[in-house]
Computed example of a mutant assay.
Amino acid sequence: MTFDVAGDAYGRFMGRYSEPLGPVFADWVGVRRGERVLDVGCGPGALTSVLIDRVGVDHVAAVDPSPPFIESIRGRFPDLDVRMAPAEQLPFDDGLFDQTLAQLVVHFMQDPVTGLGEMARVTTRGGQVAACTWDLAGDRSPLAPLWSAVRRIDPGATDESYLPGAREGHLAELATEAGLLDVETAELSVTVTHPDFDEWWEPYMLGVGPAGDYVVSLDPTARDALREECRAGFPSQGPFEVTAVAWAIRGRA
């Protein structure tokens, strides 16, 4: 899936969760200064910025298939080696990177096994490949409040629990099938404070990803009903927290 939305729209929608997830993911992976690192499916740069801070822009490369995201990240990091391509066709030579990472990307790969295999191909022998995906099937993703409300109103709706890597153990299965060795798994979590319900809801109106597509596809009456169903699940006033959990894997190329 290629996101045909502006980078700032994605940032308002998912960046509020992916940005705090980036340091947690990089810590677990163990990115170290001196390593050459690739960010696959970089989006507007939530993880890329963390990698640049840790190893320097000259040691980071990034790739994404979305033209708006490429434009956004090039604007943020003009000296970054960033290229437009899908995970399944990485435009890099074999064994170029010490670490190759994909944050919240496997869900949207057209062929996850090929994509993870490509990540292994461009990683040096014995280097590390790592990925993380939201626990969409376990209702622990940042989108869980929205999709839970959708199912209560529209039980036949298709949510995102079917996506690759969305259920427990599936990301590790994909990594093993792609040929990664010594695959390890973990659960990573972030907690985000929202000042009020409207701040939480408004980004769903931007049409980002399957959840945003669903919301904007509704007629005004149905959309209002969904909004109120979501609102009922949160405190009536003041700030509230949303905790999101991601599955993570790391393995050797």
Rank of each mutant, 00 (worst) to 15 (best):
V40M: 09
R76A: 10
A232N: 11
L180K: 03
I153G: 12
R33E: 15
L163Y: 01
R250L: 02
P86T: 08
P44N: 03
L51V: 11
V113A: 01
E19R: 15
P44F: 01
P68E: 03
V50E: 15
R121S: 02
T185L: 06
V190Q: 08
L101C: 12
V57I: 15
D198E: 15
L218A: 10
I52M: 06
D81F: 05
R76W: 07
P235G: 05
L96H: 11
L136W: 11
F197Q: 02
A244T: 06
W28H: 07
L180S: 02
D93C: 11
A157T: 03
V129L: 04
V29H: 02
S141P: 08
P155M: 09
T243V: 01
D79A: 15
T123S: 00
G233F: 06
A178P: 02
I73M: 10
G11V: 12
P235K: 07
R227P: 05
G165C: 04
P142E: 02
R223M: 10
L104Y: 15
G238R: 00
E184F: 01
A225N: 13
D93F: 12
A211C: 09
E19I: 07
D111Q: 12
V129K: 00
W134D: 02
Y214Q: 05
D182M: 12
T100L: 06
Y17K: 07
S49C: 09
V215Q: 07
S49D: 11
C42N: 01
L47Q: 10
A130F: 11
Q103S: 14
E184W: 00
G165V: 00
I153Y: 14
W28V: 06
L96D: 09
T100E: 02
G56S: 07
V50H: 03
D196Y: 09
E118W: 03
Y162G: 12
G45Q: 07
D224V: 12
E229I: 04
P220G: 09
C230I: 02
E168D: 14
A144Q: 05
D93Q: 13
M1F: 05
E168S: 15
L206G: 06
P203A: 04
V24H: 13
D53P: 04
Q110H: 14
H59Q: 13
G169C: 13
A244H: 06
D58Q: 14
G7T: 01
L104R: 11
H194N: 12
V216I: 15
S148R: 15
G251V: 08
A166E: 00
R83Y: 03
G75W: 14
A46I: 05
A222E: 14
G34K: 04
A211G: 14
F197T: 00
V50T: 15
D139T: 11
F13K: 03
D111M: 10
E228K: 01
H107W: 15
S189R: 15
V183A: 08
L188V: 02
L104M: 14
I153E: 15
C230V: 12
R252D: 07
V245N: 10
G41I: 04
T185F: 06
V106K: 10
A102F: 14
G207P: 03
V113L: 02
E187L: 14
S141H: 05
P23Q: 08
R231A: 04
D135E: 11
F13M: 09
E199R: 14
A246I: 08
V183S: 07
D219A: 09
P23F: 12
E187W: 11
A61I: 06
